[in-house]
Design a protein around this nucleic acid. Structure first.
Lengths: 181, 181
DNA sequence: GGGAGTTATGCAACTAGTTGCACTGCACCC
DNA sequence: GGGTGCAGTGCAACTAGTTGCATAACTCCC
């Protein structure tokens, strides 16, 4: 499981509470490993039991208290172990492909609409990623270390969304053409 | 959930037993919606309860008996409903991206090896898909209906794997360059 | 003083997917 | 007759992820 490891990576960058982690997962890390606050709280608890992180209460004024977690020695060890360990390539589950495959069994106009909607959603995400690239990484050739790694992950998101948009366009063109005949 | 719907699509193409379905999921449908035989048997049972498929025992000689399932009226209705219904874009969970993001926290040589391994795995899959494209769809412009849809889904797999291979190459080049400095 | 909004944590119940094992029947080969 | 291997179905126990709800403290605005 990689949620633990995603949390370790994130906490290593900067210690934080469950709530803060959940927010980070809304963007950046969450782009390629989404998680809800429930999952994060539960996992943090498990990670404390495993000794990978330690948490301590922080009293705040003006807002409720929180528990801030940081990575322990053991946590760093586990992270290093996991980074070097071989993993399976992702098993992708692509709903829309199942729908395209079954297209002849339903209303093709409705499905074309659904695909167009997904195309736009992916185009939107792509724009978000491209904006981040432009703003945060104006000179990629000069990057190194952690900043380089962040950039490379973003590049993965860009490539994936680009591929999806282009695929949707291909599907739309072919299905509309087929409908006309 | 789409496993039910993936099974409906597959059974609509051709009725079959749980075992046969599991084999189909090893290829074609399973490329973008993997499922084990366990999941398939359990889901088929649930689908019988829902009235979406009906199963009957088939006695065979030379091999064990089997239960062959086919899609019912209600199953076709559900499939049509689902095809037109809006769905969420996939939540991708990409392990390797988490690893790249955490690269500075472990042994970079080992991680580069791991990425190279994934690159090759994806390149292999891509070759498989390209071989199918060449063999089964030599004249894509002439396709229509179900055959066209199968082709389009294959195109999605090709684009996805291509994007992954290219991304791995980009990551490898950048990380090796960064290591040298 | 009352409601909406944000920060903050969590339980309970559910659905989905994985892993390991168990059983049957038959064929085919040594 | 003994091993391997394929066809065929399934249970049990587990891990992972989702959804709905509950609660608390504090701010800001009407």
């Amino acid at each position: 499981m990689a949620l633990e490891h995603a949390i370790l990576v994130s906490l290593d960058e900067r210690s934080g509470s469950g709530y803060e982690l959940a927010q980070r997962f809304e963007k950046s890390i969450g782009f390629f490993w989404p998680a809800t606050h429930q999952q994060i709280y539960r996992t943090l608890k498990r990670m404390v039991d495993l000794g990978w992180v330690s948490g301590h209460e922080v009293t705040q004024d003006g807002r409720p208290d929180k528990k801030v977690y940081e990575v322990t020695e053991a946590g760093h060890g586990e992270l290093a172990r996991w980074l070097a360990a071989p993993g399976e390539p992702e098993t992708i589950r692509h709903d829309l492909s199942v729908k395209v495959r079954g297209a002849s069994l339903g209303d093709s106009t409705a499905l074309i609409g659904e695909i167009a909607r997904h195309r736009d959603l992916h185009a939107e995400r792509l724009d978000v990623y491209l904006a981040i690239e432009k703003k945060d990484f104006p000179a990629p050739a000069a990057l190194s270390g952690r900043r380089l790694h962040q950039y490379l992950v973003l590049r993965g998101g860009i490539r994936a969304e680009q591929a999806l948009v282009e695929w949707c366009d291909e599907v739309l063109a072919a299905m509309r053409e087929d409908d006309r005949r």
